[in-house]
Amino acid sequence: MNHRGGFALIKATWFSWMQYRSFFFVLAFGWMIPPLVALFVWSAAAGEGSLGGFTRGEFITYYLVLVLVNQITYAQVNWTVGDIIREGTLNHWLLKPLSAIYQALSSELAGKVVYLIFVIPVGLLLAILLKPEIQTTPINFVLSLVATLFAWGLRFAWGFWLAILAFWITRADSFLALQDSLVFIFSGMVAPIPLLQGSLQQIANILPFRYMVGFPVEILVYDLSNKAILFGFLMQLTWLAIAVLLSRTLWVKGIRHYSAVGG
């Protein structure tokens, strides 16, 4: 594989994205709002006491970290790749002497950096205003970083296989809307997973969505037991493997099926 070309592409894409930074800042602002609303709702509900074992300060910490993790792991690739297939611009990707994954990765990484330039200062400002409480150990911090990395991989691969359904289905973006709803409920965004009731919590633990956002946050903010952390990593890696496998198989099949329209 042509790795040097791949890195050059990543750099070039980053520069071109920075030209449109105000546009991406607006997008990043929009993605921050749902977790921030949840932050306000839960800290209002907790009041001066605690709710389900969590104090107001802990809710604030949970959601501020979640805003950051959500931004790091958010895979916009699942929107763009679908459009590229539908509109036929995929041709440009296929003609370059690079693996197509670099094309997706380059916009992914470029986006990440641009978004984080916006989100980190805003997050710090919110942290100063809202005064989160945090107690964590260095080990949990490192584990949480590792989990975030896997979470990003999982969300990317998962988004990718959903996006390339566009090879076969014209309105594959409906699946993405469904996926966004599932993420909102089951990833720990609407409420921390430990606060979900009964069967909802069990479903959340099995579905992949918790391992895309909530799990790294829980490691850092809540005192998860060793067993729970191990279980989480196992689930995360299993889903990652499934997503990568699905992406690869569907991509190979899809390329054979693909025929561009227009000119």
């Binding site: 509900a45 409906s174 909102f184």
Partner: peptide, 19 residues
């Protein structure tokens, strides 16, 4: 989309008022 929107919003409230 309309139904997803509704279900998600209602579920969010049900989860909140479960606590």
């Amino acid at each position: 989309h309309a139904f997803l929107n509704l279900i998600v919003a209602v579920l969010a409230l049900v989860i909140l008022f479960g606590q």
